[in-house]
Amino acid sequence: MALKKPAPTAPSSDDERRLARDLPGLLSALAAADPLARRWAARDLAAHPNASRALVDRLRIETEPSVSQVILTTLTRLGDEIAVAGLTECLRSEDAMLRNAAIEAMKQLPDEVAPVMEQLLKDDDPDVRIFAVDVLESLRHPRVEEWLIRVIAEDPHVNVCATAVDLLGEVGSERAVPTLHALKARFVDEPYIQFAADLALKRIAQG
């Protein structure tokens, strides 16, 4: 036994190659029994701008986390309206890993996510509103501060406001100061809000 020269690297012909790599072939492979074939199909679908719907549909029923991860990456790469809607839908998932992966994916699509952000921040489900604030955490978009100010001005749920005020401590400017004072007045009996708003005010004052 020793160092051995490998056989020349050539296109493989097994499992994931059984199906054609055109759109119909990849859509079939996306439903294959073998997770490896599904991952390769999801990856290759990044080259097909019309694949978002099929990927979103698969994501709803996919049980293998590694396949879901690849689907999310491809949806981020495609970044069209359907893809963004699919990512948004994941914010309602009970699966924490999927939810977090979707949040991370959405952070990378500032321009595409911006049109749905207002709607997300007004969602009926406070958890979805918290996750939307989590997306804002590193969304490179000029309206982030404006959205956060609106959340602490209007959102009735203390946990949503607490998440937003934490973030305002990091990204807020003088513009946020009056609303932070108003928040303290609105949740006068909530010690965490008092603490977090004071901290945000201090950080803003320090520049």
Binding site: L3, K5, R17, W40
Partner: peptide, 24 residues
């Protein structure tokens, strides 16, 4: 020379799915 012969050098673009599929 034996070491040179022991390594298989291939061209790959790691961002290209087709290239990556050949390396498994």
């Amino acid at each position: 020379q034996e070491l040179r012969e022991a390594v298989d050098f291939t061209r790959v673009n790691v961002s290209d799915a087709a290239d990556m599929r050949r390396h498994r």
